[in-house]
Amino acid sequence: MSVSDVTSTPEIELRSLDELWFQVAGTVCNLTCNHCFISCSPQNHSFEFLSYEEVNAALQESVEHGVREYYFTGGEPFLNKELVRMLKRTLNFGPATVLTNGTVLKKEWLEELKTAEAESGFSLEFRVSIDGPTADINDPVRGDGTFDRAITGVALLCELGFLPIITMTQTWDDSENLQILESFRTVLKTHGCDRPRLKILPRLKIGAEEKRTEGYQQTERITAAMMQDFDRNQLLCHHSRVVTNRGVYVCPILLETDNAKLGKTLNEALGSFPLSEGACYTCYQFGAICTNSTLRPLESAE
């Protein structure tokens, strides 16, 4: 391998379509978190809502690809008034996960989903973004009052028998991780969550986060040499695609990247992708952070 080969941008092929994502609320969100990697807000209509018909068509198409599970994200998915209907439909095909900020959940929606989940035999997972165990840590990032509102949503999920996964974007030093986790477990227990499931996620230094702190250095890129002996399954783009109202994208993080749109339909979007972005480097370091089973490894276990 020559020097230019070693430092060149590697391509990653789609191994198989295991997870299908729906950018169901586009980039529209009721919150304006200042670390959002796609800068979602009430005013950001760069991507719009998906319709029930678009989701249903992709579900049907997904069967021939052997999709294993389905993810719903935004923006805030529950702003899409068809979401409950979409999730109920999805549970006929397989398991579903919703990434929500937890602030707009309604009891009647969740009751309906609880019944649908029970009848389906599949898991319906809720991943709720709360960026720390206190309002002091969370609210400067996600907005005033959002900690209390999200915790209310989490308590409602727990009351109905769901086991939400709380994801925190890390805005503190590594050395504080264990303390943060312990503190959050205590907080959640006081809100009726007796089996807290917590994940710490790395910051993605693009979109709003790039303005809040800093962007990626040019050295923070995946090189061909780094891919030698690397388990490609760690990268979401090796086994996922994202359906948006503007076509099918390589991953839910790179929506604003020029070449991330791979086609209009799933069948057009099965090609390879150059791992050229700074965010790819974060995914490389931490594993497929967007899926349920992966989180940042900690140096010292509890």
Binding site: H65, R68, G94
Partner: peptide, 20 residues
């Protein structure tokens, strides 16, 4: 396809198993 892949009943679609 992978020795340590977890196949749980609630997170494995029929479509996926048909593919395997």
């Amino acid at each position: 396809r992978r020795t340590n892949e977890f196949l749980w009943e609630s997170t494995t679609s029929p479509a996926f198993l048909n593919r395997l």
